[in-house]
């Protein structure tokens, strides 16, 4: 079997997002920022969102990490840009649920765009956290109170 097992994990679309990350930059007018550390590997992800009204006008991320975490962050930003915060939170929930094996409707999955492809991560339990960390950061950034300290 060997490395061919990995074909389902490192799909072209994932490698493309990892090698050519979308929205990997700071957001000057960010209305909320969140930093999350992955204590198992020492990686860090910073997510910055600019919310106008109830809509995510702009979103970006910075930080370093493995192929999966970088690709997931890139896909996440593409998926939620222009969505309402409520829609984005629903998507984050769908993604987190998906990562722990809970089933969701085709419609819900469809909304995730490229990001739904990371369902393949379920085959690699040790790497689930790498894929979900950016979605957690998004959730926390959208839900945090103004006076809450960044992690």
């Amino acid at each position: 079997m060997g490395l061919s097992k990995l074909n389902g994990l490192y799909l072209d679309v994932i490698l493309d997002h990892a090698n050519n990350p979308r929205n990997k930059h700071d957001i000057p007018n960010a209305t909320s920022k969140m930093t999350i550390h992955n204590p198992t590997c020492g990686d860090t992800i910073n997510v910055a969102v600019e919310v106008e009204g109830d809509r995510i006008k702009n979103i970006g991320y910075t930080g370093s990490g493995c192929t999966i975490s970088q690709a997931s962050a890139s896909m996440m930003t593409e998926a939620v840009k222009g969505k309402t915060t409520e829609e984005a939170l629903d998507m984050a929930k769908t993604f987190s649920d998906m990562a722990i094996g809970k089933k969701h409707s085709e419609d819900d999955l469809e909304k995730l765009g490229d990001a739904q492809i990371l369902t393949s991560i379920m085959e690699f339990p040790a790497r689930i956290k790498c894929a979900t960390i950016s979605w957690w950061a998004l959730q926390r950034a959208l839900l945090k109170k103004d006076d809450e300290e960044e992690e």
Partner: peptide, 14 residues
């Protein structure tokens, strides 16, 4: 290549 990706790949090779 990030160490996590390396470790996943090496694991696939036993």
């Amino acid at each position: 290549l990030h160490p996590h990706d390396v470790a996943t790949a090496l694991d696939a090779e036993g």
